[in-house]
Design a protein around this nucleic acid. Sequence first.
DNA 1: ACCTGAACACCGTTCAAGT
DNA 2: ACCTGAACACCGTTCAAGT
Lengths: 292, 292
Amino acid sequence: MRAMPTDRTPPHGTPAHGRPADAAAAHGTSSDGARSDGTPAHGPGTPADATPAEGVPGGGAGARRRGRPRKDEPALTERVVLDAGVRLMVRDGLDAVTMRGLAAELGVRAASLYRYVRNKDELLDALADELFAGIDLTRYAQDDWRAALTAMAAALRRHLLARRDSARLIAGRFTTGPNALRNIEALLAVLRGAGLSDHDAAFATYTYVTWLFGFVAAEQNRLSAEVAAGMAPREYLDRLAGRLRAMPPDRYPHVVALAGELTAPDLAARFDFALARLLAGIDVLRTTADPR
Amino acid sequence: MRAMPTDRTPPHGTPAHGRPADAAAAHGTSSDGARSDGTPAHGPGTPADATPAEGVPGGGAGARRRGRPRKDEPALTERVVLDAGVRLMVRDGLDAVTMRGLAAELGVRAASLYRYVRNKDELLDALADELFAGIDLTRYAQDDWRAALTAMAAALRRHLLARRDSARLIAGRFTTGPNALRNIEALLAVLRGAGLSDHDAAFATYTYVTWLFGFVAAEQNRLSAEVAAGMAPREYLDRLAGRLRAMPPDRYPHVVALAGELTAPDLAARFDFALARLLAGIDVLRTTADPR
DNA sequence: ACCTGAACACCGTTCAAGT
DNA sequence: ACCTGAACACCGTTCAAGT
C-alpha cells in the first residue's frame, strides 16, 4: 500500500480539494487541524463543537513555541500531535503519516513522539477518532427519519471525501472514541425514534456505518495502480469499459452487456442508490415492528 | 502485471485468462488460497510452515534448486510469484507481504521480483484478483434470486474470512481481473434474472459488493490496538460495554441504553441483518420495476 | 535471459544520554 | 520531565555486474 510519492490524484467524482493554508499551520501554533468540511462552517470555535473530554488547555491551546519557548512547557502535547497528524494525512496522504514525518511536521525528532503515543498503531487509532471531531450529526436531526438519515449520510460522505485517505484510515478500525460516539448517538436517536427495537436500532446503525465507510473507502481509494501512477480516472474507466466489452460473451454475457453501466463514474448516484436500498430495507423492519 | 491481463501476454506465455476454473473452492475453511498449478517453491529454510502445504505437487515446476536446476527454465514465473504472495499473506498477514519477504519465500532476492511485477502496488492488485481464483459464485445460482444472493453472500464471506487480511487487501482496490469478473458475472445474472433494469442490476451489484467487502473488512480487522497487542476480543468488548454504560447519560442516552446491543459479538447475525435489509431494498425496486 | 550484490533513501522503535 | 543521537533491524527500488 505504500504508494509512491508521485500521487496527487484526486478521488474521482470529487471536487479536487486543493489545500490552501495548511502550510502556515505547519510550524507552531495550529490547533486548527484541517477542517474544510463542506458543511456550513459556522460554530463557535473552529473545530466544530467543543470536544468535551480531553484536557484541552482552555483558551491557549497550542500557543507555545511561537515567540519565546517557555521553559517549563513541553514543546509537544497530545493535542498538538493529533492535530499535526490529521493535517499531515489530509495534506500528504496516509502513507505520509510516518513517525519521522510527523515529527518533522512538528519540528522534533521521531523519538520524542513516543512520550505521547505508545506506538504508531495507537496513533492511528487516535487519529481515526480525531477525524470525527469536525462533524456533528446531531445538527442534522429532524422529524422525518428518512430525511435525517439521508442528510446525515450526505454530511458524513462529504466530510470524509474532503479528508484525503480518511475512509482508508477508518474502514479497518473500530473507532469508539468520544467523537465517533457522539455521531453514533445521533444515528441511534433517529432509528429509535423511527420505532425500531433496541436490537434493530443497534444493528441498523452498525449496518449504516459499515456500509458508508466501506462505500467511501472504495470511492476514495485509487482505482488502480495505473491511476495511482498518474492516469486520469476518466481514461481508466473508458479503457476498462472497452476491456469489459471485449470479453468473451459466452462466458461473460452480463459483464459485456452492462459494461457501460458498470463503469459509469457517477459515485454520487451510486451512493444515493445504495442508501435508498438500505432505507427501504429499514422501513420494512420498522413498519413490521410498529405499524401505523 | 496489470489488474486485468487479458490483453497482455505474461512473460512466460501462460495464458492468464484461460485457466480452468478453480477446483477446491469455497467450501470448507481451509486456508489454502494458493493454486495448485505451480508448486510452491519452498526455500530451503522456510520458517515454521505451520500451514499444511497446499496442493498437489504440480510436476516439476517448483523442483528447481532441489535437484538439478534446469538450465533454460527460469526460477520464477508470474504464477509462482502470485501463489507465493497469497500463501504468505494467508499465513503471516498482509504486513508480512514485503518484496523482501516474498523473495525469501521463493528462495530468491528481492530484486529478482521486479522482472515479474512492476512494483509492489501492482503486485497487490494482482494478489487481490488472485484471491477470487478460489471461489466461483456461479455454483450458487438458483431460481429464487433471494436464495441465490444469500448463498453467494455466505460463500463470499466464508471465503474471505478463511483468508487472513483478504478483505483489507481488497477493500481499497477496484479489482477487475478475470477472477473477480467471473463472480461479478454471477451476481449480475441473478439480479437481471430477478427483473431489475440494466442500470439497477449494475448499481445493485456495486452496492452488494462494496457493502460485503466493507463488512468483512470491519469483521476481519483487529478491534483495536489492544486486541492487536494480544487482548482477547471478548474482554475488549466487555470493557467497551462498561465504558459505554459509564458515559454521561445526558449527552449519550442511547449509547448508554444500547451498550449491550452495540457490543454484542455476533457478527454473523449482523451480517444476516444487513443482507436482509439490502434484499428488502432491492425487492422494492424490483416489484416497482416489474410488478406482477 | 535471469538473478545477485550493493547501494540509496527511507521505515518503527529503543535507550542511554543530555538539558 | 522532556527531547535528542545513535543504533538496530527492517523497508521498496534501482542498477551495474555476474552467469
